[in-house]
Amino acid sequence: MLRESVSEAVRLLLTDAEVWSIILRSLLVSGTAVLMAGLVGIPLGVVIGMHRFRGRGPLVSVINTGMALPPVVVGLVVFMLLSRSGPLGSLGLLYSKQAMVVAQLVLAVPLVLGITVSGVSSVPREALTQARSLGASWLQTALVAVSEARVLLLVAIVAGMGRVIAEVGAVMMVGGNITGETQVMTTAIMEEVRKGNFAPALALGIILLTIAFAANGLMARLEQRTIDT
């Protein structure tokens, strides 16, 4: 059965438009979420990483805890916010791609933020002192911090992508796994397996694995570069 499934999976990947529409939807939803998480998490992380202020320690602890948020809990909270009787129910976003983006954003932000904070915190103080001494404004100093920590910022984005694209609980809950609408790779795999259709599940699984493998490989290489420089 396994051999048949694999060859069928390969055939689907080569020919089936439905499978590819699921893959692209997955990439679109998760990509949007991670992009937005980067736009929020990186600037905020740079600010927190560069400065020493009262309450910084507890704040960093909260962020680090957020890195391990259980997706189903995030899904539940976003569901309650967006459900018709919830505070944001009037937006009518439940069971939409936007809802999935929101849920994945909530999952990705702490990860991007946490890695950015630790990356920027580890930039040598001398770098910032030197930049300021040569006349760098606050923003120009922050750019030095970003430049010094750039590899870890990329790691933050890659890690965020790796987390949300493989996540199933939150998107299932707020997206509803509607075929052709909000079905993404992880939710599609669950459904196909439940129906006993292993071939399409395997085809999607191969893509997910490939993405995870590529992301991890990229992260490993990036981290190696941080060590080298």
């Binding site: 040598p124 001398e126 770098a127 002192t129 030197q130 930049a131 001494s133 030095v144 430049s147 010094e148 420089t229």
Partner: peptide, 8 residues
């Protein structure tokens, strides 16, 4: 400074 930070 004593330990100059050389930028990339």
């Amino acid at each position: 400074f004593q330990h100059p930070h050389i930028f990339r």
